[in-house]
């Protein structure tokens, strides 16, 4: 049975209001969009996401606990050995005047959604405790760099710009040779730009962050440098055209950006692997 004219008018009115509201949201500038998305995620999605995570956590808890227990024991032994080497290295760096004043620290954070939409260039992360958020703080997984902080959403939450974002650029260097270049996303793939035609770079080379600041382009302000040494990507293809000054270098990010669960925010500057200060207490099993 056809709808009454009054009902038709109501449907058209609802369509107009909803479509206009959606278009108004689309037209907002990015910083206001993230503010609105903040409110929406707090009201609409966070309760569901938290419940799902809690339920999933309960199901996996026992098995994961046993696995982590064994892993922690093994890592404690490794960490004690590594710590001895780090302290020795720190002593040498201090003796040479190279010691870092602000050693980096990793803060684990949960990504709000496990399944990251392929079109998303921003994700929201939650830390278990308040964090001193600063713009451009690097964010990584255990595999490699995934992005950088663009805006604090709360004392323990922030928005992270993913390396897939069109304006993203980070200065990297080839781990093997120290050769520097700028990594940028280019229409679905990643390229290392500014690599001269005579430079030594091959497929499978590992890219790590460089401590050089990155110029976003034109008269834009330089983006502060990242701590040196964070793994970023691996070179997948190197091309060279006769008439070009620079090589065409395609790279694959080390981190899987389609499924982000736990990420780490890197706090502090300097070589992020340097462990300055007192050594942590050695585990009982590892003590001599």
């Amino acid at each position: 049975m056809p709808a009454a004219p009054q009902s038709r008018a109501m449907e058209r009115l609802a369509l107009g209001v909803c479509a206009f509201s959606a278009l108004a949201l689309l037209a907002l500038p990015l910083n206001q969009k993230t503010a609105v998305a903040d409110v929406l995620s707090r009201v609409l999605t966070s309760p569901w996401t938290r419940t799902v995570r809690f339920a999933e956590g309960l199901v996996d808890l026992r098995g994961e606990n046993a696995r982590l227990h064994a892993q922690v024991r093994a890592m404690e032994v490794d960490a004690a050995a590594a710590d001895r080497l780090r302290r020795e290295r720190d002593r040498l760096r201090r003796a040479l005047g190279f010691a870092d004043q602000d050693p980096a620290r990793l803060v684990p954070c949960e990504v709000e959604r496990l399944q990251v939409d392929p079109t998303a260039t921003l994700v929201k992360i939650h830390a278990p405790e308040p964090v001193a958020w600063r713009e451009h703080q690097p964010v990584m997984t255990d595999a490699g760099l995934v992005g950088r902080v663009v805006r604090a959403a709360a004392p323990n939450a922030a928005w992270v710009e993913l390396i897939t974002s069109p304006g993203f650029a980070v200065c990297c260097q080839v781990e093997r040779t120290g050769l520097a270049g700028i990594l940028r996303p280019q229409g679905g793939v990643f390229e290392l730009t500014m690599v001269g035609r005579d430079e030594d770079i091959v497929a499978t080379d590992l890219l790590i962050t460089s401590d050089l600041p990155t110029q976003a382009g034109g008269d834009a302000e330089a983006i502060p440098s990242m701590p040196r040494g964070l793994p970023v990507a691996r070179v997948s293809r190197v091309g060279l055209h006769k008439w070009k000054l620079f090589k065409s270098v395609t790279v694959e990010p080390l981190a899987d950006l389609s499924e982000l669960d736990i990420v780490f925010v890197v706090l502090g500057r300097g070589d992020w692997l340097v462990a300055d200060g007192e050594a942590p207490a050695a585990p009982a099993e590892a003590a001599p």
Partner: peptide, 16 residues
């Protein structure tokens, strides 16, 4: 809107 809240750069598109 629920789907948009996870993709702030295109906020409003899914709602539309």
């Amino acid at each position: 809107l629920i789907q948009d809240s996870g993709v702030p750069n295109l906020l409003g598109l899914q709602a539309l």
